[in-house]
Structures are given as C-alpha cells and as structure tokens.
Design a protein around this nucleic acid. Sequence first.
DNA 1: CTCGTGACTCCCG
DNA 2: TCGGGAGCCACGA
Length: 112
Amino acid sequence: MTEIFTDRVRRIIAQIPCGKVSNYGIIARRAGSASGARQVARILHSSSAKYNLPWHRVVNRKGQISLAPGRGFERQKKLLEEENVFLDGNNTIDLQKHLWLGNDFDLYGDCE
DNA sequence: CTCGTGACTCCCG
DNA sequence: TCGGGAGCCACGA
C-alpha cells in the first residue's frame, strides 16, 4: 500500500462526516506528522478537486476559515452552510458542535 | 537536483 | 490580552 502522508491526509479528509469540520493540526497528527498542518493545507489545495475531497470541512484551529475573501472564503462558507454548519458574527464555526475528532461515535452526519 | 512557498500552529515577549 | 517570529514538511517549477 505504501501509505504516505499525503494519502493518509486525503483519506482522513474524505472520512469527515457531513455537517462536521476538522482542523489542520488534528489531521496532520493523525496522518503521522505532528507539525504537518501546513502540509495538510498544501495537499488540500493540490488534491481537493482531483480527489473530490470535502476541503470545505477543514478549517483552522480557531474554527475559522483560513481562506481570504476572494480566494475561496465565500465558497467554503457557502458549502458549509449547505451542510448546516454556520458561522457566527466573527466567521467562526462552533467547534463544540461541529468539531470532528475522528471518533466513530461522531461518524453520523447531519446530511441525509 | 535545488529553491521557494504555503487554506498552520505553537511559543515567547 | 494581543502580536510577532520560528518551525515544520511536502509539492510544484
């Protein structure tokens, strides 16, 4: 199989349930690199469209969209809203509700 | 092959 | 409390 960091990241992201979000740090850690948060972002940027990954379910540690307005911010925001994930006045996601830790218990989705 | 960059995070002042 | 700097690793040119 030769599982590499990139493949793991892609897989983890693909497992994020609908209506949930995760952050770069957690994904990186589960993928094998404790400090690979930036790589996760880079991989996402590189393979999100190609592998049909729910990139919009990945946000930064604070629960905010890291994308800058005009660079995909609105796109991600809209996609999240489509999954019942809304942002508060500060464009922050309620992590208490939507943060996905990777447990099977949280594998249920609000969509479908 | 080498260099630069990036949708981050943590630590320190 | 908030801001700035350094570290990290993979991928593209």
